[in-house]
Nucleic acid binder design. Structure first.
Lengths: 210, 210
DNA sequence: ACAAACAATGACCGTTGGTCATTATTTATA
DNA sequence: TATAAATAATGACCAACGGTCATTGTTTGT
């Protein structure tokens, strides 16, 4: 029975078409300003159809967030291969995160939005859960690097690697968020550039790990 | 001519009444879910009147954010008196920030929203600018502590204190944001508590400064 | 007592996310 | 191939919302 498979394929395809369209519109106008009517038009579908594939505008946005996490994960997996010690791998994770935020500013925005979203595990939708799993996968990469670093002695003892990973990641996200949202202000009031802030952040990270 | 003064006083008073009402409603339902009609009812005013005092719902929210920053600033100024060295004062700033986030979770949320808000300096409204100034004032407290720590030798040389202050603050905010939004997930998937994360963060901060 | 200035009102408007009865298309059955 | 059943897509429609503004009410100055 190939019909069911074909239908499933078509459904997946149409879903992707919708997410593509949503990306175009939302990246252009921002989540709040973008409308479902615009997305429908861009996808060459009726508005009602969008709701056959996504429960709400939020849920559609989470599909975009998920894409962001998948790209980030892929970048991290690729980049980390080059590291020759745990320490190096940790540094690579950081550098890659920065690179991601610069290369895919729109996806990075979605990840910031995700981080700022309160999560109700009980009421979680499919899409949300997947984004969450991908977020966890990203952290796992860092956890592994930290474990390796402790084992090979390239970083000092850090206690529970899970904790270290989450805290490192949160600190990084915090700095990148400020860099993204507030550099213009900080530059205006304190004459500090993005590079200044990132350099200082790096210096601190190194002290923390060595 | 006392009439002008009385009118100005009344205007300030009514403004505060509106912000009080907005706090009640927005803290209860969240910014998006709260409606201007609800705020108007809580303030015992008509909806139109709200717009005589605030340009938009966002601008009204920024008045709440501003209150948050003022409270935080006050707490910091008070707490920092107890510090006997630059290092101690930096630690106190961190502890107080945590305390603030726990004692005033709603105000802390507003500050996170502010941090996550892109700020268009050119198009800034009065209210926004004031929030910004208060945000800067908070950072200034930290800058001062860092300067003192460098001078009295209680922390190692850290380069430009402005940079150090912003990065420290951003890292802290990042960790507190994750703690606020994601502990339930982290606890569920990784069995880590809020305290675990904060303890690790502290350990890292100490290493960075010493 | 009257007019001018100021303040507050709420009916109204345009826009939006989301719904659902209707229509169109595809699949299964004979 | 004809017909019924199941599946998919549509867009008119709705309720709710942020925001506006002509009208009404109140205070001040003459």
């Amino acid at each position: 029975m190939g019909i069911a498979e074909r239908k499933a394929r078509e459904r997946v395809h149409r879903r992707n078409v919708i997410v593509d369209a949503a990306e175009d519109v939302i990246f252009k106008y921002g989540f709040s300003a973008a409308t479902m009517a615009q997305v429908a038009k861009a996808a060459e579908l009726s508005k009602g159809t969008l709701y056959l594939y996504f429960k709400s505008k939020e849920e559609l946005y989470r599909a975009i967030i998920l894409r962001g996490f998948i790209i980030l994960k892929k970048m991290l997996r690729e980049a980390i291969k080059e590291g020759n010690s745990g320490y190096e791998k940790i540094i690579i994770v950081g550098k890659t995160y920065i690179e991601f935020s610069e290369k895919y500013p729109n996806y990075f925005t979605t990840i910031l939005d995700y981080e700022n979203d309160t999560f109700n595990l009980a009421a979680a939708e499919t899409e949300s859960l997947q984004a969450l799993e991908e977020g966890n996968a990203v952290i796992e990469i860092l956890i592994k690097a930290i474990r390796e670093g402790t084992k090979d002695g390239s970083i000092t003892e850090q206690g529970n690697p899970f904790e270290t990973a989450f805290v490192l990641w949160s600190q990084f996200t915090g700095v990148l968020q400020v860099v993204k949202r507030k550099v213009n202000i900080i530059e205006h009031y304190f004459s500090l550039t993005k590079e200044d802030l990132l350099t200082t952040h790096w210096r601190m990270i190194e002290r923390m790990l060595r």
